[in-house]
């Protein structure tokens, strides 16, 4: 197990894409929070503000045919994979033009055309599903990869153990990517988990366990890329722990009063957007004016998508009983 502190210098175009993606995710999530307060989005939602580098760094590794299953804190994964903001926002508002026709909602972002096989609302359930996607890749010899995101809390559920064990036995091309945001719902990790690092658990399955700075998109990319190359070439699965932090509470109503004083402030200094932005500025690839222009443009596009989704119609009532079975 290794801690990689040095960021590789990725090509300018990759950095620009990552920065743009992370900003889009941040702005979309902030806007989603507002839509909840207006009651335009119902139920619950789980924001990934602070964890954007995980989504963006991993998405940059994906190749055509690769698949992803992820958690209900999955808006960032979906946007980084290219899900349209409009399709996502309409889905959250329960509109017919939502990516899942309004059947899924905030916790079930899915776009099969992008390889996004679904965000899951049952903790840990997405891991075995990714194992199955990797089985297809192995049986068909496609050279593609399955990636599954989960939180550190999911490493305490049985499906985690079973999935890693099965993937290791079959040497499947799957990456288990733990976003360790330090809290499982309202409980700090040390309350629920007897190991300091989720990656330590990899040794139980005879697979590499890799600890990565999850706030630095370039490091995330670099480490995940290495594990992905290994998996694609038959080297089997890896468990990758991205150390990150949830800047907001668990869900809509949670203000996270249980956090120790100063903890959030310390992590805010490691804001993934600031890390990449400042590096690019320091290396002469970006200036504050360009950054503000990018931010304004993305704010406009998020605003436009929100207004568009608001105006979209709800599904026709007869769709309630459609898509339960494939007819044909």
């Amino acid at each position: 197990m290794t801690q990689h502190a040095l960021a590789p210098a990725l090509p300018l175009e990759t950095r620009q894409r990552m920065l743009r993606q992370m900003l889009e995710i941040r702005l979309a999530e902030e806007s989603i929070q507002g839509l909840f307060l207006e009651n335009l989005i119902r139920g619950t939602t789980h924001l990934c503000i602070g964890q954007e580098a995980c989504s963006s760094g991993v998405a940059a590794v994906l190749q055509p045919g690769d698949t992803v299953t992820c958690t209900y804190r999955g808006h960032g994964h979906a946007l980084a994979m290219g899900l349209s903001l409009k399709g996502m926002l309409a889905e959250m508002m329960g509109k017919a033009s939502g990516i899942c026709k309004g059947k899924g909602g905030s916790m079930h972002m899915t776009d099969a055309s992008l390889g996004l096989l679904g965000a899951n609302a049952i903790v840990g359930a997405q891991l075995p599903i990714a194992v199955g996607a990797a089985l297809t890749a192995q049986v068909m010899g496609t050279g593609t990869l399955a990636i599954t995101f989960f939180g550190e809390g999911a490493s305490n559920i049985g499906a985690f153990h079973e999935a890693l064990n099965l993937a290791a036995i079959w040497k499947l091309p799957v990456l288990f990517i733990c976003e360790n945001n330090q809290y499982g719902e309202y409980s700090a990790m040390h309350v629920t988990t007897p190991v300091a690092n989720i990656a330590d658990r990899a040794s139980s399955y005879g697979m590499p366990g890799i600890i990565v700075d999850g706030q630095d998109a370039e490091i995330v990319y670099d480490q995940v890329k290495a594990a992905a190359d290994r998996a694609r070439s038959g080297g089997g699965p890896s468990l990758i722990e991205l150390k990150t932090y949830r800047f907001k509470g668990h869900s809509r109503t949670d203000q996270a009063p249980y956090r120790p004083k100063g903890e959030l402030d310390a992590w805010l200094k490691r804001d993934p957007i600031l890390i990449l932005k400042e590096r690019m500025i320091a290396e002469g690839q970006l200036d504050e004016t360009e950054y503000e222009e990018l931010r304004s443009a993305l704010e406009r596009s998020v605003h436009e998508a929100v207004e568009w989704a608001k105006a979209e119609p709800f599904p026709a009532l007869e769709t309630l009983v459609q898509d339960i079975y494939y007819e044909g």
Partner: peptide, 12 residues
Amino acid sequence: AFIGAALGAAIT
């Protein structure tokens, strides 16, 4: 694991 894997395999 293997029932979940059946699902993942079926949808791919």
